[in-house]
């Protein structure tokens, strides 16, 4: 193993009631790696993403981010649930971008970006605003800071959401189908921002249906189905020469 691991998921299991959604996912992501998670809906890829920042509590396995066990404290005798404040601290170092943006509608774009740095990290307002302006500029929205989310297009909202996550200076970015709710002509702007972010060396896990993006930007593509990892490899291996029948039929259906 060349680089240190950012995410180390070992045999992750997750059930909702009697429905087991993740049936033992083992996946390691190196620092700086860009990993695209593909799979049909219901395959558990979004659930797995949400387990990484402990939005969902896992039922089995161990999940480490940057060497730290997520959501639990491990002692020799047992593992203990963490205090909410400790979980919040862990989450603050992991950025997440949602399919439906989830911007705060009562705050302007720039207020969305500065809320967590000021409220969670305790950064002064003036510093946070300077930084937020830079971030909004980097996602191509320097003139939209005073706009409310309702005044922005879907693509613009999603780029604000990316800036909001980046404002916390995360070490890992999770993207949960970031372009699935967008009109086709708006997808490109969001993918451009993500491409730039990938080039800057950010560790990214992207749940997506954008095969083109996965092929071009990802270092690694993982195909999931039925709560297990079916195929794992470089984009050319998984997308262009899939070995598994399920992967093949999925790739054919979305291409």
């Amino acid at each position: 193993m060349s680089k240190p691991l950012m995410v180390d998921a070992r045999a992750i299991r997750k059930s909702f009631g009697s429905n087991e959604v993740l049936k033992g996912i083992t996946l390691q992501v190196e620092q700086g790696q860009v990993l695209c998670l593909l799979g049909p809906s219901g395959s558990g890829k979004s659930t797995f993403l949400r387990c990484i920042n402990h939005l969902e509590t896992i039922n089995g396995g161990r999940l480490y981010v940057d060497g730290e066990l997520m959501g639990f404290r491990e002692k020799t005798d047992a593992i203990y649930e963490m205090k909410p404040s400790a979980i919040a601290k862990q989450r603050s170092e992991i950025g997440m971008v949602f399919q439906r943006f989830n911007l705060f509608p009562h705050l302007t774009a720039i207020e969305n970006v500065i809320e967590a740095p000021i409220g969670v990290k305790g950064i002064s307002k003036s510093v946070a605003i300077e930084k937020a302006k830079d971030l909004l500029a980097s996602v191509g929205l320097s003139d939209k800071g005073d706009h409310y989310p309702a005044q922005l297009s879907g693509g613009q909202q999603q780029r604000v959401a990316i800036a909001r996550a980046l404002a916390m200076e995360p070490k890992l970015m999770l993207f949960d189908e970031p372009t699935s709710a967008l009109d086709p002509e708006l997808v490109g702007d969001v993918l451009d921002v993500m491409r730039k972010l990938a080039q800057s060396g950010m560790t990214m896990i992207v749940v997506t249906h954008e095969i083109g993006f996965a092929r071009e930007v990802a270092d690694r593509v993982v195909f999931m189905d039925g709560g297990v990892v079916v195929e794992d490899g470089t984009p050319s291996q998984v997308i262009d020469k899939p070995k598994n029948e399920r992967t093949k039929s999925f790739i054919n259906s979305v291409l």
């Binding site: 989450r91 603050s92 170092e93 959401a161 916390m168």
Partner: peptide, 9 residues
């Protein structure tokens, strides 16, 4: 959920 993911209590 978005608030949680940003580390807000």
């Amino acid at each position: 959920e978005a608030a949680k993911s940003l580390g807000m209590g």
